[in-house]
C-alpha cells in the first residue's frame, strides 16, 4: 500500500505542472495567434515560423533543450521550472493554432457587420469575434488540455517528481511488481483525463448552438 501512496504523492506535481504549463500556453498563444493573423508580413512570418518549429520538434526535445541545453550557457533551471517553461511554450504554439482555427470558423459576415456598426478593428475583435471564436475553439482546447496532462509525464525524464517518476522509483526499489506499478500510474492518468474528456464532449454540444455562422 505504501508503494501506491508514494505514487499518489506525485499527483500534486503532475497537476501543478499541467496547470501552470496550460496557463502559460493559453497566455502566450494570444500574441502568437494575433501576430500569425496580422496583415504585416514582418509580424506574420516570424510568428508562423515560431509556431511551426515549436510544433515540429517533439516536446521531449524542447524539454531537453531547456533543461540540459540552457545549463550549457549557464542558465541553470531546476527540473520543475524547466518543465513548466518547455511545456508552456510548446502549448502556446498549439493553442495559437487552435485559437486561429476558431477565428477561421467564423463567418465573414461577422466582420462585415462589425464594420457596418462602426466598430474599430480592436473592438470588433474584443466584443464580437473573440468571444465567438473562443466558443468554437473550446472543445479543441479541452482536447489539447488532456494531451498536455499526458505529456506532463515527459517531465519524469528530467527528474521532476511527478507520477511516472515516482512509479519508476518504486519499480526500481522493487517494492512491487513493475507491471502493477506502471498500470497503477497509467490508471491515474486515465482517471484524470476522463472528467476533462466528459466536460469537453458536453462543451462541444452546448457551445455549437451559441455561435452565429
Amino acid at each position: 500500500m505504501e508503494t501506491y501512496r508514494q505514487i499518489l504523492g506525485g499527483l500534486p506535481a503532475t497537476l501543478l505542472l499541467g496547470l501552470l504549463a496550460f496557463a502559460i500556453g493559453a497566455v502566450v498563444a494570444l500574441p502568437l495567434m494575433l501576430a500569425r493573423r496580422a496583415r504585416s508580413l514582418a509580424l506574420r512570418l516570424p510568428a508562423r515560423a515560431a509556431i511551426d518549429l515549436l510544433r515540429a520538434v517533439p516536446p521531449i526535445v524542447w524539454l531537453f533543450i531547456v533543461f540540459f541545453g540552457l545549463s550549457e550557457v549557464n542558465l541553470d533551471l531546476q527540473p520543475f521550472p524547466a518543465a513548466v517553461i518547455a511545456l508552456g511554450v510548446v502549448s502556446g504554439a498549439y493553442l495559437a493554432e487552435i485559437y486561429r482555427g476558431g477565428f477561421m470558423a467564423l463567418d465573414d459576415g461577422q466582420v462585415e457587420a462589425s464594420q457596418a456598426l462602426g466598430l474599430r478593428r480592436r473592438d470588433a475583435l474584443r466584443f464580437v469575434l473573440a468571444p465567438q471564436a473562443l466558443r468554437v475553439a473550446l472543445p479543441a482546447i479541452a482536447t489539447y488540455a488532456i494531451a498536455l496532462l499526458k505529456d506532463t509525464s515527459l517531465a519524469y525524464t528530467i527528474g521532476v517528481h511527478e507520477v511516472l517518476f515516482r512509479a519508476n522509483e518504486q519499480a526500481q526499489l522493487g517494492t512491487g511488481s513493475p507491471l502493477a506499478i506502471l498500470l497503477f500510474a497509467g490508471a491515474l492518468y486515465a482517471v484524470l483525463s476522463i472528467p476533462t474528456a466528459v466536460l469537453a464532449r458536453r462543451l462541444d454540444t452546448g457551445m455549437r448552438a451559441k455561435v452565429a455562422r
Binding site: 511516472l164 519508476n168 513493475p178 506499478i181 506502471l182 497509467g186 492518468y189 486515465a190 476522463i194
Partner: peptide, 22 residues
C-alpha cells in the same frame, strides 16, 4: 480507450519494464 487515455511514455514503459513481470 486505453490507447488514447494512457500517456505514450507509460505505454512504452509498460511494454519494456512491465511485461518482464509476466
Amino acid at each position: 480507450e486505453l490507447g488514447r487515455a494512457l500517456p505514450a511514455l507509460v505505454l512504452l514503459q509498460l511494454a519494456y519494464y512491465g511485461l518482464p513481470a509476466i
